[in-house]
Nucleic acid binder design. Structure first.
Lengths: 249, 249
DNA sequence: AGGAATGTGGCATGAATACGCAAAAACATG
DNA sequence: CATGTTTTTGCGTATTCATGCCACATTCCT
């Protein structure tokens, strides 16, 4: 990994999370903490960030005021994202939906990962593009402005022709009896096809969506291989899903 | 392998992967690292890439700091964008490339316009999505991180099946004899196909790109219907293009 | 206050690079 | 076509750069 490349990655992380820890970065990028410190120094000299003990802060850190719930659920999604990112290994083909949870997964991808990510979600693609070494494939079709995702027959037929190792779905409702559900018909269609086109299906959701329903059916519990929430796997609310044979992380 | 050929290949690799390593390239092209280094030097002097220890990076890494000239040219591009947007009428199918000039056009679109915009450029799609009433279609394929555009056989075959009313191209070099040229092979291919798939071809460029050349040929002057720059149509530098039968705005 | 974490400066090492030079190739020119 | 010139390339050497490691100072947290 080139020096500039590394610094660009650090800068990206800083702007994303508003802070970075030297120790974490060094572990993530697999260089010594000395190197990270030197990078932070240089970036600080260039005015790109603010160096502090133990790491660095984004320059816009002052403006950010932590406001209750939204940041709270953000943190939960970060946890989910990290668990999800850990599942991906070099060389995999990964199909993903959109949604904030998936975005957090994209941000948590280790910089050395070499895999191929396929998605129709424009925000997700934007995140993937930030990554130094992964391949990014965009599914084309008509763009849904509110979902920021491509939908339509073309997108569906493209996904049908894919055979992915993993499929990550950010879902808004999951129930032990009814499975996962969605409130947008076209997105539900897309997710169905994505499930069919993948070896393993990973559902990511914050725990408050567990045992909730929406009008349109996506898939049954039996179609899901792995469920990721911000809770530890032994949380009581997850128990029925484990009993149903799902691997819960 | 010729020198120019080699440098075009290097440039292509840089635009594709955002980075190249001298050692890898030297092995790949089977020339000494010195030669690669000299090539990278030259390309760096020409502003085509950024030379760093161990290899080179594409400009998109530093686009934060790369804004030296662009603030100035931003205003010119706004003018171009307004002229371009005025050409579009309700019901049209419009095919566009990427590039900052095209973005400015997207921003200048009248809010009441009802048309369909088709593009593989992610920044352009993002702009189109802001618009209240236009239809947006994304061309899917592998994403070039540098150009932020989808490129590949799939994208090309999709564009081939389109019959658009208008095609807007942001171009980096135009010359009265050689026509429009480009430094990325795959983007040149895309633009060629886009030209073939459209009734009318509109080229948008700031005037400083007029009478400049890049290695890869896109199309001849005769293939262009309309040329838009920030200058008034009677500017002397535009005269040869008017004489060549192009409508200059 | 005191232990742990973090930062500083120096130094060693291997990788990347600049530079000079010479051989080879391409080009020009009469 | 022969000859001289320029360009391009590869190699050896000295130099610079990037990085990790170490000893020691500083700061942080309780």
């Amino acid at each position: 990994m080139l020096k500039k490349e590394r610094q660009a990655y650090i800068l990206h992380q800083v702007n994303l999370h508003n802070k970075v820890l030297s120790s974490l970065l060094s572990h993530e990028i697999r260089v010594s903490e000395d190197t990270i410190r030197r990078d932070l120094m240089e970036l600080s000299d260039e005015g790109k960030l603010i160096k502090v003990h133990g790491g660095a802060l984004s320059h816009s850190f002052n403006d950010v005021t932590y406001t209750g719930l939204s940041v709270y659920s953000q943190d939960m999604k970060k946890i989910i994202g990290q668990k999800a990112a850990a599942l991906i290994q070099d060389g995999m083909f990964v199909l993903t939906s959109g949604g904030t949870t998936i975005i957090e997964m994209a941000r948590a991808l280790p910089p050395a990962l070499r895999a191929t990510f396929i998605s129709g979600s424009i925000p997700a693609i934007l995140e993937y593009m930030q990554h130094p070494s992964i391949e990014v494939v965009m599914i084309g079709d008509r763009v849904s402005k509110n979902a920021k995702i491509t939908i339509g027959a073309e997108a569906i037929s493209k996904i049908k022709n894919i055979n992915a190792d993993l499929c990550f779905l950010g879902i808004n409702a999951i129930d032990i009896k009814r499975g996962t559900t969605e409130n947008d018909w076209e997105i539900a269609q897309l997710k169905k096809i994505m499930i069919d086109s993948s070896q393993k299906v990973v559902c990511c959701t914050i725990s408050e969506k567990i045992n909730t329903l929406q009008p349109i059916h996506i898939c049954n519990i039996s179609d899901i291989d792995i469920l990721i929430t911000e809770l530890p796997p032994d949380a009581p609310v997850l128990r029925p899903y484990i009993d149903a044979g799902i691997q819960v992380l």
